[in-house]
């Protein structure tokens, strides 16, 4: 018990509340994938669910922002996302252009707005 309350304890916590609750989903996906083939129609639906989940995560991170990002006004966060997507389409579907312009609008806008 001494080892658990000492130096090892943070690693036990990492395994129990960080690794396991996250890895369980990968494990479930691993076992569920066993019966599926690449051409299966079910995969079209699963991929659509995965895409919608990611979209929901993205919208949540932008609108209900964590930490320091919450200090940037919501309107500016949305404007930065919009400019990023426009830049992506304008510059030959370049992900780099989208990210760069989005970041410039966000950081530049927040800098101008700060007193």
């Amino acid at each position: 018990m001494n080892a658990l309350s000492g130096e090892l304890w943070p690693y036990v916590v990492l395994a129990l509340v960080g690794f396991l609750p996250n890895e369980i989903w990968r494990a479930l996906g691993f076992f569920a994938a066993r019966g599926l083939d690449e051409g299966s129609e079910m995969l079209v639906w699963v991929r659509a669910v995965a895409t919608a989940v990611l979209a929901a995560v993205i919208a949540k991170l932008t609108i209900f922002a964590p930490g320091a990002l919450a200090g940037v006004p919501l309107a500016l966060r949305l404007a930065a996302v919009g400019c990023g997507v426009l830049a992506f389409h304008a510059v030959r579907r370049s992900v780099l252009a989208g990210v760069a312009i989005g970041e410039i609008v966000l950081i530049g806008g927040a800098y101008l707005l700060s007193p």
Partner: peptide, 23 residues
């Protein structure tokens, strides 16, 4: 602080444009 906000913004911004590209 401003840079930290920019780092946190990298995740939603990059995922949105890359999923748009993949879709």
């Amino acid at each position: 602080n401003l840079l930290t906000a920019g780092l946190l913004f990298l995740t939603p911004m990059s995922f949105l444009v890359s999923i748009t590209r993949n879709s």
